[in-house]
Nucleic acid binder design. Structure first.
Length: 571
RNA sequence: CGGGGUGUAGCGCAGUUUGGUUAGCGCACCUGGUUUGGGACCAGGGGGUCGAAGGUUCGAGUCCUUUCACCCCGACCA
């Protein structure tokens, strides 16, 4: 491609709306253009990069035996009523009406579509397994789209759906997909982790997320420094050794603590480490058929992990309880503790507090706290002691698998694989005949990759102050031939010759033949981040040209007649 | 959804407080010339429903009302 013919416009100034590097550079380098909140046009360079990623995803899915299809982007509401998600998913699903006033949904995901595609076609266990996928547009009407391509409303996802006769075959496919995903992200040249994850709104049992490691990631991961344990903070657990409280109390005391409510205030007032104080986090749990106030008790130096807490009580959602609701439930804000708590109040104590003693907690009476309390005996709370893993893992906590140190790191979710079981096939009445000739709902798995998100994720992981640095596998062009002065015919001739040679060798090459000076050309090279540039400039008359490595910013002078072979070596 | 902010040329902005001829600047763009290894210089030039609608006024980018769009923070720790 000739730069002079490339529909590409870079700007000198940063776009004002972009905060993250990927967003800033994608706009500045003319890869994308925003057309509405969370909706972007892909310009040629963006499209090329996207297509390169798409191609790698496709190749690996195909070689894993999956079949590519394309489902309609606009789907009838009835399909979503069948699975019950039309009510569950709420405003994220953008609904539209056609001229006949029929209700349609812009697909936010496609489980229903694929169940419908397979049911009544696959009739026997002999036809299983089946794995279908598409690389297609999705629309989720996010409350607050942001970060450019990382959290758009319209995006492209590779979504695959597999159908099996039993759980063990699903397990096999799930492992195959995990392996396939590892190949894909490795091929893309990205540093990533596969982590245990929450199943979220899609439902189902086992699930793993694939995270591209980057500081700007929205997800936090707990990764063990000495084994392969890795989990999203939403499900991460730990196994910390017990610590002794150096402060000993003869017997349980109730201490007057006026205006001492926060953990910091209590720690200071009592002269005790926050670790030995029980913190009460009061939430309103929302279930399909009811709402109720629930108290979560964690150590004072821990934080409640809401997703874990929500899962521990099987709630649909957890929201903050208002002061009024807290009072109504009979709780004394600032003085809530597990000891002497009204028996009608639901509560859960974090696992880390099991068997702990010498604890400080609210006395459930204003203005008192108790000191020297123990959770050693089960009956101290009456006969019901409910424990659960509800605290957020902290940096330095011990790995539940090997006892190693857990580190927290940020990641961008670019893939997610689920075991769905029959949560969609059953309500949608999608069955096959098993070996006994009995109708059975398909056992399903589903597997997603955020293809357009990967464009941005790759940049978040690979950039510097000058611009993007593309991994070779997905760069729009591998080599950028910069002609120093297009008025010098010997430079142009040499460049054209090299361009032809590289193209014949199958190297994606851009020739910067624009009538620009050297400055803008090299700046564009650095901004767009092609892996290599060949500068053909004034030293050509001495038989020398220069190769630039975008990643290292290294300049290598080479003999002009050796530049082609040198490049072929480097690529 | 709650809170805050911003809409003026393709991009980045000034002008709005205190209403007053033809609405400015930088970048980008066009023409000519000089330049040519790190976003050149000189001269000339083109480009605007001032987000939209309504209102006040002799007069509105500026004041009032309504509305739309976009951005940021939050929707986590009693």
């Amino acid at each position: 491609m000739r730069f002079s013919r490339l529909f590409s416009y870079t700007t000198k100034e940063d776009p004002k709306d972009a905060t993250l590097p990927s967003h800033k550079y994608l706009v500045k380098a003319g890869f994308i253009k925003q057309i509405a909140a969370g909706i972007y046009d892909f310009l040629p360079l963006g499209k090329m990069t996207f297509d390169n990623i798409r191609q790698i995803v496709k190749e690996e899915m195909d070689s894993a035996g999956a079949n590519e299809v394309t489902a309609g982007f606009v789907t009838p509401c009835e399909l979503w009523a069948e699975s019950g998600r039309i009510n569950k998913m709420g405003d994220e699903m953008l609904r539209i009406k056609d001229r006949k006033n029929q209700c349609y949904v812009l697909s936010p995901t496609n489980e229903e579509t694929f169940v419908d595609m397979v049911r009544n076609r696959v009739k026997s266990y002999k036809q299983l397994p089946v794995n279908l996928y598409q690389i297609n547009t999705k629309f989720r009407d996010e409350a607050r789209p942001r970060f450019g391509l990382l959290r758009g409303r319209e995006f492209v996802m590779k979504d695959a759906y597999s159908f099996h006769s039993d759980e063990s075959d699903l397990d096999r496919e799930f492992n195959l997909m995990e392996e396939t995903y590892r190949k894909i992200f490795t091929k893309l040249g990205l540093e990533f982790r596969a982590v245990m994850a929450d199943s979220g709104a899609i439902g189902g049992t086992g699930s793993k997320e694939f995270m591209v490691l980057a500081d700007s990631g929205e997800d936090t991961l707990a990764v063990c420094d000495s084994c392969d344990y890795a989990a999203n903070l939403e499900v991460a657990s730990r196994k910390n050794p017990k610590k002794e409280n150096p402060v000993k109390t003869e017997e349980i005391e109730q201490i007057e603590t006026p205006n001492v409510k926060t953990i910091e205030e209590v720690a200071e007032f009592m002269g005790v480490d926050k670790h030995f104080i029980i913190k009460a986090v009061i939430k309103k749990a929302i279930f399909a058929d009811k709402e109720k106030i629930v108290v979560f008790f964690v150590r004072g130096d821990d934080e409640l992990e809401e997703t874990k807490a929500k899962n521990a009580i099987f709630a649909d959602d957890l929201v903050d309880a208002s002061e009024e609701e807290i009072k109504e439930a009979g709780l004394v804000a600032g003085y809530v503790g597990p000891f002497g708590l009204d028996s009608k109040i639901d509560y859960i104590i974090d696992d880390d507090l099991r068997g702990a003693d010498e604890l400080v907690a609210g006395a459930n009476i204003e203005p008192y706290h108790i000191k020297g309390a123990s959770l050693k005996e089960a009956n101290i709370l009456g006969n019901v002691t409910r424990y659960g893993d509800i605290a957020a893992v902290k940096e330095g906590d011990r790995c539940p698998k090997c006892g190693g140190r857990l580190k927290l790191t940020k990641g961008i979710e670019v893939g997610h694989i689920f075991k769905l079981g029959d949560v969609y096939s059953k309500p949608m009445n999608a069955t096959f005949l098993d070996e006994q000739g009995k109708a059975k709902a398909f056992i399903m798995g589903c597997y997603g990759i955020g293809v357009s998100r990967l464009v941005a994720a790759a940049i978040e992981q690979n950039h510097d102050e000058f611009g993007m640095i593309w991994p070779k596998e997905i760069a729009p062009f591998i080599v950028d031939i910069i002609i120093g002065d297009v008025k010098k015919s010997e430079q142009v001739e040499f460049a054209e010759e090299l361009y032809a040679k590289l193209q014949n060798a199958g190297v994606k090459t851009l020739i910067d033949d624009r009538a620009e000076r050297f400055g803008p050309k090299i700046k564009d090279f650095e901004l767009i981040g092609f892996p290599y540039a060949v500068v053909i400039g004034k030293k050509l008359k001495d038989g020398i040209v220069e190769i630039r490595d975008r990643k290292t910013l290294e300049k290598i002078e080479v003999q002009a007649d050796e530049v082609f072979s040198k490049l072929m070596e480097m690529l």
